[in-house]
Nucleic acid binder design. Structure first.
Lengths: 219, 219
DNA sequence: CTAATAATCAAGTAATCGCTTGAATGTTGT
DNA sequence: ACAACATTCAAGCGATTACTTGATTATTAG
């Protein structure tokens, strides 16, 4: 006997949610959002074993969040479409709004200080036009190379102090990283503000910027 | 030793997704979206035992998707905010777009025939102004009583034929039910079209209509 | 064809989840 | 205080999940 269509539908919707219910898969998605990548690269980036990463990726694929294609020996994964990114972001929004624990963690990242409102992407685009802003891309060099915001300089958190010292103390700095689940940008902004610099975080990361249809520089 | 803030954040985000990863919780959310309700009523509606429903509801609460308040002997649950509804809907959209299985089930509900595009809520509101539309609310009477679209008549799927027979065959009918995961509206539209009537489905259900800030009639 | 590389499959284990059952808690009305 | 009601807690179970390990399947290069 077949189950009811309603139950079958709910089972499918639950499958999508379940795909997002493991931290390991969320980091994989974050990585995939940076650009198309093979299993080994993703496993490396996320610290998962290859077999484990492969299994998680298949979960994501069955849930329709990512698609894969074979190129030579590799199988490359990418996000199915913008909705996947929207879904990741909406989960973050709900969590930030309603979970006290998340509030606490984010406050910890800002070291107790009040974090300033993030800069909108529209605002940053306007400031780039004016040339009145310094942009820090705090992702690892290989992700920077795959695509970054025009004019951004790639700065690791370790190099932050050194790079900041070369700047005019009045500069406006905007930091960004991977996207919805990025933590580096918070840390960078906190460190820069401790040095008395004017730093803010970009709302969203490179994937969102790209999704807006804005210019992206690839090396 | 404490885990990294990043891992802690991902754990929280995963918690939100996990709350949506069981069909039982999705039906509970669908019910809660109709209006504030107690545990027993929700258990009844969803066919869960009371203890089981209570546990699922606590999952949803911990994930920040619903909130509860005590009123007398009962504990009433409701959606935290509109984002919960948005999240449920986005999951449905991703599933409909990317999962062949969902496509198949929805096609089955339309009995092979091509389902017409749903009517937007703006469009329906305009048609109500004109008085040029017949609205069928195909939810159970108690949900209809808690709130429905102005001018809608409450018709069960069983009564559909009888009610349809009293209508001018040229009438435009719009059917709606609970919301993102509703199935009745599909079935009603299919049945009505088989009788040669002009029937379409409303995009979204009552919760979305209410969320738009439109008028809702409660008995 | 063979070797090397990239990914997947298959089996096993520990942990978690969904559900049931029965007891415990909190609230209201007598 | 007591009984009645609504909900939650606690323990136990079978099923599922995440991860590991080792074998297997594609694809390319020699």
């Amino acid at each position: 006997m077949s189950i009811s269509p309603k139950a079958a539908l709910l089972e499918e919707y639950a499958l999508v949610a379940r795909a997002l219910s493991a931290p390991a898969r969320l980091v994989l998605l974050e990585q995939i959002a940076q650009g198309e990548r093979g299993v080994e690269a993703l496993a490396d980036k996320t610290g998962l074993t290859i077999a484990n990463a492969s299994q998680h990726l298949q979960h994501l694929r069955r849930a329709g969040l990512v698609t894969s294609r074979r190129e030579g020996k590799s199988v490359l994964y990418r996000l199915s479409d913008a909705k996947t990114l929207a879904l990741m972001d909406l989960i973050r929004v709900v969590a930030e709004r309603n979970l006290a624990q998340v509030e606490r963690i984010l406050r910890g990242l800002s070291d107790g200080a009040d974090a300033p409102e993030p800069v909108t992407r529209d605002e940053l685009a306007a400031r780039i036009e004016e040339g009145s802003v310094t942009i820090f891309d705090v992702r690892p060099p290989d992700e920077f190379a795959m695509g970054h915001i025009p004019g951004a300089q790639n700065v690791s958190l370790a190099d932050l102090d050194r790079t900041a010292a070369t700047l005019d103390p009045g500069s406006d700095i905007v930091a960004y990283c991977r996207g919805p689940y990025c933590v580096y940008a918070y840390q960078a902004v906190t460190a820069l503000r401790k040095r008395g610099l004017k730093a803010r975080r970009l709302d969203g990361g490179l994937p969102e910027w790209r999704e807006d249809g804005r210019q992206v520089i690839a090396l």
